[in-house]
Amino acid sequence: MTKLMPAIVLAWAFLATSPALPGTGGAGAQELRLVIRNHIFEPAELRVPAGKRVSLSISNEDPTPEEFDSSALKVEKVIPGKSRAVVRFGPLDPGRYEFIGEFHADTAKGVVIAE
C-alpha cells in the first residue's frame, strides 16, 4: 500500500490538472464564473469550448433569490440571495445557448457561446 501511494498521488494530480476529461463534472471540467448583481448577469456573454463538460460557478450578490434557467442548456437552478451555486452542463455543440434569471426575466439575460 505504501509503495502504491506515490502512484496514487500522481494519478490524482494528473486527474486534477488534466484540462478536460470528458464526462467529469468536477475537477476536470471547465470552470467559469458568473455574477448576478442588481438582477443582471456579469458577464452577459460566456465563451466555452464546444464538446466539453462545463462547470459554471454563479455568485448571486443580490439579497433576493434568482433562478438560473435555460432550456437550451437544460439547467434550472435556484440560487438564494447572497450565495453561490454551481451548475454543470454540456458537452455542447457549437452555437448560442441563451439563459435567463427567471425571477427577473426582463433584466437578467445572457448567452453561452460554445465554439
Partner: peptide, 27 residues
C-alpha cells in the same frame, strides 16, 4: 435523470439527440 446529470452524479449518454426548439420550444 437530467437532474442527476446536472448534479454531476451520472455522466453517461449526455449527447443531445435532436433539437426541436425551432418548431416547438419547451418554454
Amino acid at each position: 435523470v437530467q437532474f442527476l446529470d446536472a448534479a454531476g452524479l451520472i455522466n453517461v449518454l449526455g449527447q443531445r439527440l435532436w433539437d426541436s426548439s425551432g418548431w416547438l420550444p419547451q418554454d
